[in-house]
């Protein structure tokens, strides 16, 4: 039985194969054509097969060559979740709340991804960012967003 000597690379190789299979699966309807008249599916299909090959080689390497033994990393799931979700919340809230409240809320929330965050500093930073972004982006660079959106009573439009 083969033993996995480099777990990280083994997973990496598998990931590359999965990625190529996804591209093949979602591109299954695309016309491949032939080499003189390549269809829209030709190039992606060729690349996917190539990537499968590379993935297999990475896996083989992971079975043969031992990893150099890097130190374990500690995962910080709270930080990951906050940083990754912050732009999504921003995107969803922008047209409804407007730039200023969206920015304020997002900054306060995301600042708690750090273990050094404190309420007072976060609120101050969020206020600063909200004002800055409104002045810079709605006034100076005139992006088509409102400082306050329709969900904000009185101020919004």
């Amino acid at each position: 039985m083969l033993k996995i000597k480099n777990g990280r690379d083994f997973v990496g190789g598998v990931a590359m194969i999965v990625v190529s299979l996804l591209f093949i699966w979602f591109g299954r309807e695309l016309d491949v054509g032939n080499s003189s008249q390549m269809g829209p599916g030709y190039f992606p299909r060729m690349l996917s097969l190539l990537l499968i090959g590379i993935g297999v080689l990475i896996i083989v390497q992971a079975l043969v060559v031992a990893s150099e033994g890097e130190p374990d990393e500690t995962a910080n799931w709270k930080a990951y979740a906050l940083v990754i979700l912050a732009p999504i919340v921003f995107g969803l809230a922008l047209s409804r709340l407007g730039l200023a409240p969206t920015m304020f809320l997002m900054i306060v929330a995301v600042s708690f991804a750090s273990k050094y965050a404190g309420w007072r500093q976060s609120v101050a930073l969020a206020l600063f960012m909200a004002i800055c972004s409104v002045v810079l982006f709605t006034r100076l660079l005139s992006l088509p967003v409102n400082a306050f959106g329709p969900w904000i009573p009185f101020l919004g439009n």
């Binding site: 940083v83 732009p87 921003f90 995107g91 730039l99 997002m106 995301v110 600042s111 930073l125 972004s133």
Partner: peptide, 29 residues
């Protein structure tokens, strides 16, 4: 801890301003 929220804020607006669409903000995330 004061810097990264501001960077994220500017990234969000920056991504939005490419096409004035929040779709690019989701792509970024």
């Amino acid at each position: 801890h004061l810097l990264f929220p501001a960077i994220i804020g500017f990234c969000c607006i920056g991504a939005y301003s490419i096409n004035n669409s929040v779709f690019d903000v989701f792509i970024m995330s």
